[in-house]
């Protein structure tokens, strides 16, 4: 898998709610899990035109508590549906788990990152190593990457795909750790 994302920055502030801001709540209630269905509604609560503006490889840069609220996975699947990456100052733990399980490459705990970017900047992020480069402003930062075991789940394509791999390994008698 390609862990290096090179694309435009889309900057958002603090406290974006996973329900409402990032994705309409109705998809959580309907238990919709198809990224193709969800992606046209990404960021509907803050910028309804967002899905028409982004390209695969672009990066959402968000402030504190990105995805706060009831931990529903649909918003993260919507991000995956566009092939975007995510860099956030913090992500509450329920949404952290969902971001992993959605198979989304992301960095979190990136203190002050929203001060280093503006929407439209050209970014290059290595989600495997945590290296963050703002090419437009010549800023380089090193953030803590995700644990390698969590990267393995993302690499597999998220929780369900990783689970299918584990089951297959068990059947063939291998260790079922990731």
């Amino acid at each position: 898998m390609n862990w290096i994302y090179k694309g435009k920055c889309w900057k958002f502030g603090d406290n974006l709610g996973i329900d409402g801001d990032v994705m309409p709540l109705r998809f959580a209630l309907e238990r919709e899990l198809d990224p193709a269905v969800l992606s046209p509604y990404l960021m509907a609560g803050v910028d309804p035109e967002f899905p028409n503006k982004v390209s695969p490889g672009d990066i959402i840069v968000a402030g504190k508590r990105f995805g706060q609220g009831n931990p529903h996975i649909q918003g993260f699947l919507g991000i995956v549906g566009h092939g975007l990456g995510l860099v956030a100052e913090s992500i509450p733990r329920g949404s952290f788990r969902n971001a992993i399980n959605a198979g989304l490459p992301f960095l979190t705990g990136c203190d002050g990152v929203t001060g280093d970017v503006e929407t439209g900047d050209d970014l290059e992020i290595n989600f495997e190593t945590g290296e963050f480069v703002n090419l437009s402003r010549d800023i380089t930062r090193q953030f803590q990457p995700l644990d390698s075991q969590l990267q393995a789940i993302i690499e597999a394509g998220g929780w369900h795909a990783n689970l299918e791999n584990r089951i297959a390994k068990l059947r063939s008698g291998e260790s079922a750790m990731t």
């Binding site: 089951i167 068990l170 079922a176």
Partner: peptide, 15 residues
């Protein structure tokens, strides 16, 4: 819902 993984594979990731 990840209890499915524990039932099938014996564990699920934990921080």
């Amino acid at each position: 819902i990840e209890i499915t993984e524990v039932l099938a594979c014996g564990s699920v990731w934990l921080r």
